[in-house]
Nucleic acid binder design. Structure first.
Lengths: 189, 189
DNA sequence: GTTGAAATAGACAGACCTGTCTGCTAGCGT
DNA sequence: ACGCTAGCAGACAGGTCTGTCTATTTCAAC
């Protein structure tokens, strides 16, 4: 692929990561080869292997960037009551679900392709999940929930399930399910 | 691989499907090649392509068999109150989660590797999900739930999420989460 | 200008992929 | 005894995969 106008002055590592994220997400990680990524990014193979020692390093960078974006979203939320914070975090699922090109959770999809729990990819996914669970746990505890670990566990499961449902079933149903889930799962509505 | 004693008189198609199911589930579908499957099943390549016109046909057969086993489990449940039936169906998730070698939901993992919603694999996954949702919907309606579609949607999401959580987080937590989910999601406990 | 770093194109190796094909063997019904 | 079917073994074609390598070009700093 020729470099297009919007690629000008964008460094190769950035172009590679953007292209890889798009292709990995849309088509699956194993299904997308290095040749394809460098062609669409307009980067030479040697340049790729200079910035990323192996394909797995690129995959990990992709996962970590997605993780970072999610954390940034939560960090940027205005301070509100814990319950509203939880609603805002889960509400992002509804937003993602109704996006065009939505193809499920980046982390769940990646984990499905990496069976080895000790692999770098799975470690990156684990880190994300630990952060997400912990964030919800803290909010549940702050809201006065007497069993914040269990409630957080249910919210994590709900999040995962709704992300999958938005991919495989009807995305339009997701926002109302989120609303209803919060009403039923969080105590003393 | 040599045929082992337990393979004697097991027809090739059966050995192929058993071997493929085991490998696909444990290592991922794209990650396992035909050569490996026929070697471990002790079947010649020509015999494989006689029984399954392509690898995708084998994948679909694998998905459909897993689907069939789940349906058989539900069909064999003794008739009880709807609420108990729901508990039994979700309870199977807890059983699976604590199995050695558990690696997540067969259908979710497969869907992650097949982006094209019109592919035969995705259609097989869709059929499974439609059956599962419908089964829960009927039970919710029979239990007197005033919004059975929403409750069923939440139960499907919970199921998916707990299956993923059992794979990626702590399987030991799953059974108690199932119990708690039923208590909070089903009305008039 | 010159030097050096960074990026380019693209060949190459070695492995693996799906799917086809040829030839051989073993067993079974008639 | 004969033919037929099913299965076995393995070569082969054509493609793709990751990762390495050579050789060239661009460009900025000095």
């Amino acid at each position: 692929m020729q470099k297009t106008a919007d690629m000008i002055d964008v460094p190769p590592a950035r172009r590679l990561l953007d292209t890889a994220s798009r292709l990995f997400y849309a088509e699956g990680i194993h299904a997308v080869g290095i040749d394809r990524i460098i062609a669409e990014a307009g980067v030479a193979k040697a340049t790729f292997y200079k910035h990323f020692p192996s394909k797995d390093d690129l995959v990990v960078a992709h996962i970590e960037e997605q993780d970072w974006q999610g954390r940034a979203y939560v960090a940027a939320l205005p301070a509100r009551q814990p319950r509203e914070m939880i609603a805002a975090i889960l509400g992002r699922i509804g937003d993602a679900a109704t996006d065009a090109g939505y193809r499920g959770c980046v982390f769940l999809n990646a984990a499905a392709e990496y069976p080895d729990p000790d692999s770098a990819v799975r470690r990156a996914v684990d880190a994300r999940r630990a952060w997400y669970r912990d964030s919800l746990h803290k909010l549940c505890a702050a809201s006065g929930d007497r069993s914040p670990a269990i409630t957080a566990g249910l919210l994590v499961a709900l999040s995962d399930g709704l992300l999958e449902g938005a991919y495989l079933d009807d995305p339009a149903r997701v926002p109302s399910l989120i609303e209803e889930a919060i009403a039923r799962l969080l105590p003393d509505a």
